[in-house]
Every structure is written in structure tokens, then in C-alpha cells.
């Protein structure tokens, strides 16, 4: 087994090109479980923790570019005000030990339908930046996830960063689990409302083969808010519209029965989370007037 430890991004891409079967390792919170239990013996490791630029973030032309090696603890401490939805999701990840080490790049790399960073990234229409020694490409988040634990990343590619606009309005994240910490989501829901663009964004976790959005629910709510000029008046939204929004979110999921919950329960919980998330977000918007 080889242990590759690049110190620059260019070096990392060259090493990945030369060793396409090398397993990238960042926080190791997914990779090491596989290794410790001997589920996987890769021919080589590619340690990404020496590449300083990978754990940095910056603002470029009004868009945040966040390195793949930024940890959940960093997101909470450094970006909580600009990415409140993702920060809320980050606070629910594992334990302090896991949040100190686990990265968003690793969450994307594993591409689990239950990855907690995914719903808020979908809701705020983030973009993934992939790179290989042949060049860089950027993919909308919803095109990145292609199946359970499968992504659009090629073998010669690495995740460099994600790009996202700082929050334009209230963002929410909720997750159903059996405990307040250390749980894989039974299902989860993220919401971003963008008053400037008159837009609503959603993200659903653990309730389909991949993390998904609920476009019909988004269009429905944008319609309701536009029709009654609610963005302007900031009046409460009718209960019937909230219920319909919840139903449409539940309908966008494709859940299964498994050890963590039934499909029916997941649909029900999603409808409730969607409704409540919107009320929380809308109340925050109204209070900000």
C-alpha cells in the first residue's frame, strides 16, 4: 500500500492522474471506518490534509468559494452568518470529534443520500468544482449526485471546492433522528428563501436514492408568494398553502422502508418539516422588516 502526501493542489492532481485507484482521504471519518473494518484495501491513499488552500474559503465577485477541506467546525465558526442553512446542518453532524475532522468535500465524495451537507447545498443552488490534471469543471449540485453513494466525479478527478452565494434570506435545516447527536438522518429537509430573487430553494436528504430537490413545491410557493405580493407585504401565508407545500415536498421524495424508518413515515415527516421550516423562515423574514 502506498501513502501519497501532496502539499499543493497541482501535485495532488498529478498524483491522482498517475494513481487513479488511490483513495483520497481528508478527515477520514468515512474512509477510516472502511479501513479499520477491512471492508476496503485500496492500493494507495492520497492524503489531502497537507494542501493548505483546500481548507480555505473566500469571496469572489459576490460568490463564496469554499475549499473541499473546510471542516464542519470551520463552517459553524467561520461561515455561520453567511451560510446559516449549511451551518445548521453542520451542527447536527456526529460529535465535536467528527465535526472537527469531517469535511464537506468528504461528504460530497461519499455522496451518501443521508449526507447532511447535501440538502442545504441543493437548497441554495450550490455548484461543485471538480478538477483533474486535464482541467476544471463546475457542476450544479443536483447533477453531481447520480445514485446511492455515486457521484459524477471521475476517477482522475478531485473535488476542489463548492461555490455558493452568501444567504440572501432565511435558511433552515431540520433532521429526524433517534437522538440529538450522532445519528444518520431518517430524513432531512433544507430550505432557503431568497426575497431579492423571489426564489425558494429546497433540499431533501435520506428519502430518495440521492439527495433531491422539490422543484414543484418551490414553484408552488413562489407562485403563492408572488400572487398575493407577500414578498412585499410580508403577511402570513395561508394554512392551506403551507399544507400544499408540505404535500409537494413529500411527493418529491422517493423513500424506501429500511431499518431507520418506513417510506410512509419519511413522507409524513418531510411534509411536517417542510411546513415548519417555511413558517420559521417566513417569521424570520417578517421580523426582519
Amino acid at each position: 500500500m502506498e501513502f501519497l502526501q501532496p502539499t499543493t493542489w497541482t501535485e495532488a492532481l498529478a498524483m491522482k492522474a498517475a494513481h487513479p485507484d488511490a483513495i483520497p482521504i481528508a478527515g477520514g471519518t468515512d474512509v477510516m471506518v472502511e479501513i479499520n473494518f477491512d471492508r476496503h484495501r485500496p492500493p494507495a491513499f492520497l492524503d489531502l490534509t497537507r494542501i493548505a488552500e483546500l481548507s480555505e474559503w473566500g469571496l469572489d465577485n459576490g460568490v463564496l468559494r469554499v475549499g473541499a477541506g473546510v471542516t464542519y467546525t470551520q463552517l459553524i465558526d467561520e461561515l455561520g452568518d453567511r451560510l446559516p442553512g449549511l451551518a445548521k446542518a453542520s451542527r447536527t453532524v456526529g460529535s465535536p470529534q467528527i465535526r472537527n475532522r469531517g469535511t464537506v468535500g468528504g461528504n460530497l465524495g461519499s455522496a451518501s443520500p443521508a449526507g447532511d451537507a447535501h440538502p442545504p447545498l441543493l437548497a441554495s443552488r450550490a455548484i461543485v468544482e471538480l478538477a483533474s490534471s486535464a482541467g476544471t469543471r463546475r457542476l450544479p449540485m443536483h447533477e453531481f449526485f447520480v445514485g446511492p453513494k455515486r457521484s459524477a466525479m471521475r476517477k482522475d478527478e478531485l473535488i476542489r471546492a463548492f461555490l455558493v452565494a452568501p444567504a440572501q434570506g432565511p435558511q433552515q435545516f431540520s433532521k429526524v433522528g433517534t437522538r440529538n447527536a450522532m445519528v444518520i438522518a431518517v430524513c432531512s429537509f433544507a430550505l432557503a428563501i431568497e426575497p431579492d430573487r423571489r426564489r425558494v430553494g429546497t433540499g431533501i436528504g435520506s428519502a430518495a436514492p440521492t439527495p433531491v430537490t422539490a422543484p414543484e413545491a418551490e414553484r408552488f410557493l413562489e407562485g403563492v408568494l408572488g400572487e398575493h405580493d407577500l414578498w412585499q407585504t410580508r403577511a402570513p401565508v395561508a394554512e392551506s398553502a403551507l399544507l400544499r407545500f408540505g404535500e409537494l415536498v413529500a411527493a418529491a421524495a422517493r423513500p424506501i422502508d429500511d431499518v431507520r424508518g418506513t417510506a410512509a413515515y419519511r413522507r409524513h415527516a418531510l411534509a411536517v418539516m417542510a411546513r415548519r421550516s417555511f413558517v420559521w423562515a417566513w417569521n424570520e423574514y417578517r421580523a426582519a422588516a
Binding site: I25, M32, T49
Partner: peptide
């Protein structure tokens, strides 16, 4: 951190 999740070389 959890030492079991850090690869020795890291």
C-alpha cells in the same frame, strides 16, 4: 479528534 479515524501518516 478520534484517533481511530486519523490515518497514521496524516
Amino acid at each position: 479528534v478520534c484517533a481511530c479515524l486519523v490515518l497514521g501518516g496524516q
